[in-house]
Design a protein around this nucleic acid. Structure first.
Length: 909
RNA sequence: GCGCGCGUGGCGGAACUGGCAGACGCGCCGGACUUAGGAUCCGGUUCCGAAAGGAUUAGAGGUUCAAGUCCUCUCGCGCGCACCA
């Protein structure tokens, strides 16, 4: 293709306009208090300049892409899909008069750069900087209207200073249950001191640390040998690391955690206040995993201990025929009888040897061992055996269950295998349904004890009654459980943010942690020559002895933060990215985050971040909201997931399949405007869709037709001669030699011409508001197809068309706009800040409309009637039609349905 | 297994609240201009049929004057969760 003749001189046009935008900082977004240069197109459009207040600025629109991790491979054609959508919208919103914030930056901490450093000894910063340069060059070649003055990288000390700052806020805050909000830890300390006088320092510290939103715990964590680090729950998929696919094992280690579980309810509830897709909200809901039920205590026979279980079906308590503890449950050893001791010990060893993968893969085949102990069912004092089994998880609920084999699939399987009794306590409403293994709602049966009976009650009522009874007897209580776990926040890596934490020993020699003051930020990582994790699991930072050991005798924390830390809050830094004194100024935060749609107005990115990034970011945002650093409870008002772009073979693009299409190829062959247009023309933004080189050529031809709509065919030869010219200075000169076509004239448009234009305005405007880019482009094509047939092209009409085109194909539109302005007498104001045209419904009104006529729902004719014809006239005209008559003659007309101005259906028998 | 979403020409996809199914583009067929064209322009293109006409939105049933759109079941595909009591 590159050898064939160009449709139009995009190779001259695109560099020319990118240079103009860059040099004029055309897309700089202005904050309240910024100095707006009088010559800036934004100043001209809004007739403001100099230092302006928030009130003087037009309404804001914050449109954000999920910023990329700059990998060494560069961009393929899948990357710019979301970026193109947001750019089109950013340009559209500018034309609609908004002050648009459209920034870009780099999520630059991450494993690949570190792994490269381990292999070669090259500092990850160098790799990262090179990759950023590649990504930036490619993204810039696509002509997106980003405000590059706000560019950030999470690896920049001026940036991660504030990531560390947020960590300090988490460390120095606790969750106040009564206020349902984070509060400064200082309040808690003062409160505690007033309640308990002369509490020993270590005891006070232990209490406070148990309340901090960032805390240290020695807990079983996912250790990944292959990566030499621990991972968060969210980063472990099917017992393997999400990155690299290495096996993962449970291992107790000292780790930093964030108390996200305190926010479970708010993270769930506030989903109702934001405009995200249902599927995305559902994913978050599932991840948070709220379930209502009850905790019930079972007395252990011959012991003072009780076993507490969580159940969502307290109504089935009478059907509990045995109990199961997780193998890790703390009471297991205590209750196991002498005869069972060996069997239990062997089973526990087997379980710890199993990886999580094996534990889930073998899910179908239940295993377990009897402890020899019994407990009393609190409703009827029946003696039931206590087992251990790995189908009960230590990490959920209380780590113990009451087993109701008749009405729980897993308990049923287990009871069947080990011959445990199965007692029906729920009767399905449909008599044909077998009660064995029936898990739905029904009516309680066989559920009468000495003090309580549930018999005859529907499931919901039975639940209420038994829970109230348990509470009144002190045997249990209503409880809500969440699947969400606290967030494991430390990693044993080099290339991440160091913690602003010191470790010290008190007089008794006990180790404790202490935060560095804010003025010690940023804490920079030390210089290293060896980036490998140490064999003991100690992080690579531990190698830097001089960095770790301070003169005061204290030692630095050597873990680093996970990659999510930097991406958790970057949307806030974009508001005020160069502010050295605050994470964001109050004034800027208020201006950009407030309004009808609070927070980011539109956030576009891949579905791979449906739970991790989006849940973590919402959590941090809520903490910052509680502490009054931000003014909205949610960060992202509207969120759209773009669908993946597949290779031409309909497979996911990957190096190994060899189906990756780098962006550079289409940019070279057909230009950026054609690439942008095709990215959007492929289909709906949210949909997964395959790339097609043929399809790119189709939209490229369309842009060629747009060019020829404005420029005489003859002129083509001139840009052909310019093929070899690469000198940027010459581009404008060569383009200036190309003249507008002679058919373009400053004449009054005809009615059909205005109609074509206004139909296009209407469709493109509505489709952009609804993010339906593909159909908006087809409307532009329809207009051009028609305009090509006009002998005279009124300048006023095609001028407005260029405004409609410019968000999609900005370079071509700017070039034609400039040429047109020279002859049409219209001022040559920057197209990027032109006024979006309004469509006039009056111009779309027809004298005659076409009405389809159906007989018994089948189309038989299409008649023309005057637009103002009433239903009676339309009916008469329909029945008078020559094509209709044969169908009605000799038949009885039972009914005639006339849909006003739409359709006639004649029902005959 | 559970939850969510989706099935429309040879292909990507249109069809807002039920109201002319197949917009727009690709591909294909024919024509014009041309030394030539894989450039451009014009015409055609859901299927069967010479035509009249008939069939058609994964399949089966239902509601309705009217169903791609609403309801029920079945099949297929995609995504998410996955022993969460």
């Amino acid at each position: 293709m590159s050898s064939s003749r160009r449709q139009y001189p995009f190779h001259l046009i695109e560099p020319k306009w990118q240079k103009v935008w860059d040099e004029g900082q055309a897309f700089r977004a202005f904050n309240p208090g910024d100095e707006i240069p009088p010559a800036h197109p934004f100043a001209l459009r809004h007739k403001i300049s100099g230092k302006v207040s928030a009130a003087q600025l037009p309404p804001k629109f914050y449109i954000l892409d999920m910023f990329p991790y700059p990998s060494g491979a560069g961009l393929h054609v899948g990357h710019p899909e979301g970026y193109t959508a947001t750019d089109i919208l950013a340009r559209y919103k500018r034309a609609r008069g908004f002050n648009v914030l459209h920034p870009m930056g780099w999520d630059a901490f991450g494993l690949p750069a570190e792994q490269f450093a381990v292999k070669t000894g090259q500092h990850p910063r160098k790799t990262t900087e090179e990759n950023i340069a590649t990504f930036k060059r490619q993204i810039k070649s696509l002509g997106f209207s980003y405000d590059w003055s706000r560019e950030i990288a999470t690896t920049d000390p001026d940036y991660f200073k504030w990531t560390q700052w947020i960590f300090l806020k988490l460390y120095n805050s606790y969750f106040d249950k009564d206020k349902n909000s984070a509060r400064p830890i200082a309040e808690l300390i003062a409160n505690r001191k007033s309640q308990i006088s002369n509490e020993p320092e270590s005891s006070l510290r232990a209490f406070i640390d148990s309340q901090r939103l960032a805390f240290v715990t020695e807990a079983p964590v996912w250790w990944c040998e292959g990566l030499g680090t621990v991972l968060a729950n969210e980063e472990v998929v099917d017992g393997k690391s999400e990155v690299g696919g290495f096996p993962v094992i449970r291992k107790p280690m000292r780790q930093w955690m964030l108390r996200i579980t305190k926010y479970a309810e708010r993270l769930l509830e506030d989903l109702d206040t934001i405009d995200w897709t249902d599927s995305l909200k559902e994913m978050q809901r599932n991840w948070i995993g709220r379930s209502e039920g009850a905790e019930v205590d079972f007395q252990i026979a011959g012991s003072s201990e009780k076993i507490r279980v969580f159940t969502t079906r307290p109504d089935t308590l009478f059907g509990a025929t045995y109990m199961v503890l997780a193998p890790e449950h703390k009471l297991v050893d205590e209750i196991t009888t002498a005869e069972q001791r060996d069997a239990i010990a062997n089973y526990k060893t087997d379980v710890t040897k199993k990886s999580d993968l094996e534990r889930t893969e073998l899910a179908k085949d239940k295993t377990g061992v009897f402890t020899g102990a019994y407990a009393f069912n609190p409703v009827n004092q029946q003696n039931i055996p206590i087992w251990i089994a790995d189908y009960v998880l230590a990490s959920y609920g209380t780590g113990a269950i009451m087993a109701v084999p008749a009405h729980d699939t897993r308990d049923f399987e287990f009871a069947t295998k080990f011959n445990l009794p199965i007692v029906q306590v729920v009767q399905p409403s449909d008599a044909k349904t077998d009660w064995r293994g029936f898990v739905g709602d029904g009516v309680s049966v066989n559920s009468a004890g000495p003090d309580i009976s549930l018999n005859g009650l529907p499931t919901a009522e039975a639940k209420k009654k038994i829970t109230t009874w348990l509470e009144s007897k002190g045997l249990g209580k209503r409880t809500i459980n969440y699947k969400l776990r606290d967030w494991l926040f430390s990693r044993q890596r080099y290339w991440g943010e160091p913690f602003p934490i010191l470790w010290k020993r008190d007089a008794s020699g006990t180790l404790y942690h202490e935060a560095l003051p804010e003025n010690a930020l940023p804490v920079l990582p030390p210089q290293l020559t060896d980036y490998k994790p140490t064999a003991t699991g100690e992080p690579p930072l531990a190698r830097a002895k001089n960095w770790v050991n301070l003169a005061t005798g204290s030692q630095r924390e050597t873990n680093t933060m996970p990659q999510w830390a930097g991406s958790c809050w970057y949307y806030l830094r974009f508001l005020d990215s160069k502010n050295p004194n605050a994470i964001v100024s109050e004034e800027s935060e208020n201006y950009w985050m407030s309004g009808k749609s609070a927070g980011v107005d539109l956030y576009v990115g891949g579905t791979e971040h449906a739970v991790l990034h989006l849940l973590y970011a919402r959590f941090w945002h809520k903490v910052l909201f509680d502490l009054r650093y931000v003014s909205t409870p949610e960060p992202f008002f509207k969120l759209v997931n773009q669908g993946m772009v597949l290779g031409e073979d309909n497979q996911k693009m990957s190096k190994s399949r060899g189906n990756v299409i780098p962006v550079d190829a289409p940019v070279r062959d057909v230009g950026t405007d054609a690439l942008r247009l095709y990215e959007m023309f492929m289909g709906p933004l949210e949909m997964v869709k395959p790339w097609s080189t043929r399809g790119v050529e189709g939209v490229y031809r369309f842009l060629g037709r747009v060019w020829r709509l404005f420029v005489d065919e003859k002129s083509e030869t001139e840009f052909e001669q310019a093929e070899t010219t690469t000198e940027p200075g010459k581009h404008g000169e060569l383009l200036n030699q190309i003249r507008l076509g002679s058919a373009i004239a400053d004449v009054a448009p005809t009615a059909p011409q205005l109609k074509a234009l206004h139909a296009c305005i209407k469709k493109v405007t509505e489709d952009l508001d609804g993010l339906r880019f593909n159909t908006a482009i087809s409307a532009l094509m329809v207009f051009v197809n028609e305009a090509m047939t006009w002998e005279t092209k009124p300048a006023a009409v095609i001028r407005e068309f260029l405004i409609l085109l410019h968000p999609f194909a900005p370079h071509l539109a700017e070039e034609l706009w400039e040429k047109l302005s020279a002859v049409s007498g219209q001022p040559s104001a920057n197209l990027a800040y032109s006024q979006w045209p309004a469509f006039d419904p009056a111009l779309l009104v027809e004298n005659e409309i076409e009405i389809p006529v159906q007989i018994n729902g089948k189309l038989r004719d299409v008649i023309k009637v005057p637009t103002d014809a009433d239903n009676a006239k339309i009916e008469t005209a329909a029945l008078a039609s020559d094509k209709i008559k044969p169908f009605v003659d000799g038949k009885t007309i039972k009914k005639v349905i006339v849909v006003p101005k739409k359709l006639v259906n004649i029902v005959v028998s």
